[in-house]
Design a protein around this nucleic acid. Structure first.
Lengths: 189, 189
DNA sequence: ATTATTATTTGACCTAAGTCAAATGTATTC
DNA sequence: GAATACATTTGACTTAGGTCAAATAATAAT
């Protein structure tokens, strides 16, 4: 079977003109500069950012240490899930790692649109399902892989990530120290 | 605000009679004995089990070690998410830890019902949102907590779990060794 | 009650990965 | 093109938690 992401894209392609128009009507193009925060801790995540270009990340700070929970590239959807869904303050920040261009949709506008265009509820469901599966697999990684295995996984499955991001961020995404990551790289090559 | 689970239960209470009837029509009550497998590895998770009584768990085996990924008590919904959603073979097992009584719904029956009763799509979305938030929090725990902290968290937030389950299962759920868990308990009390 | 089985604890030792500190390399900026 | 700031590497040392093995408890079965 094709990947679930392809299935979602097919579903979007097959949407009727009215539904697509409704989505476009509530979307807004915005740009951010490298270093800008799209979401701050304690703020309610009231918008979803569809990344059109550039790279961003979601992270939180624990014991003065930054922990990166998600990396966003072109086509990804950036927002703090729990904060967005429950409309409660976010534990996480979202930061532009390069200049980024995004398409923004407000939480309430999307909620309203789902009422009028039920296919958007199905789309929302598919997207959340996709995120759940991603989360399950990430949890699986943390349960089963050593630091070296996690790094090799990225090297083979997401090489673009290593090419485009500083090691500090990769380390914080893999939940290992910068020094350990550096040693793993030395050992491997 | 009330918890999201309460909001979901409210939504269910507010459903029209036809939708509820449709759900009931595709539900089946079944019982399993302690030790029975509700789902085996490599099998497609084609049913969801709503636990009416008893305890179950979901786990997988990695390097000959069992890793428990979820514990199910009364009212919980048991199935392997990725396998169920994509209808692909499951990495995980689901096992009855006590005798259990469940209400079973087949994947395809539920898919059909969602077509005819759109409110079920909204309900499905809410349930998956709830699962995503749960997953995010579990990931957060693995990112930030030491073995001792994870155990204390369970002691304070889910004491029923410690009272009703052998330490082997608690350890495998916290992803720590049985010996470490035993030492933590000795140290604390 | 007495075995047999399963669950839990304790001891001795090991190892992956963390921390702290300094060195080197690479970009940026004035 | 120095100088300042970041990024990465390397070294020395520590530590949380793992492994293996044996000792107790505690349950279940005959």
């Amino acid at each position: 079977m094709q990947s679930y992401l392809e299935k979602i894209n097919q579903y979007i392609s097959g949407l009727d003109k009215e539904t697509i128009a409704a989505l476009e009507q509530i979307s807004d193009i915005k740009t951010y500069k490298k270093g800008d925060l799209l979401l701050k801790q304690n703020e309610v995540s009231s918008k979803s950012y569809h990344i059109l270009s550039g790279i961003a990340r979601k992270f939180f700070i624990h014991n003065d240490k930054e922990i990166t929970t998600e990396l966003y590239f072109e086509q990804d959807l950036a927002f703090s899930f729990e904060s967005y869904t429950l409309q409660t303050p976010s534990k996480e920040y979202i930061e532009a790692l390069t200049d980024v261009k995004v398409s923004v949709i407000h939480y309430h506008a999307f909620q309203d649109a789902k009422q009028k265009f039920p296919k958007l509820t199905t789309l929302d469901l598919m997207l959340v399902e996709y995120y759940s599966i991603w989360l399950e697999n990430r949890l699986f990684q943390f349960h089963t892989q050593s630091a070296t295995e996690k790094y090799l996984d990225i090297v083979t499955k997401s090489p673009h990530l290593i090419q485009q991001l500083p090691l500090t961020i990769i380390a914080s995404y893999l939940n290992i120290s910068l020094e350990t990551l550096s040693r793993i790289r030395a050992k491997i090559s």
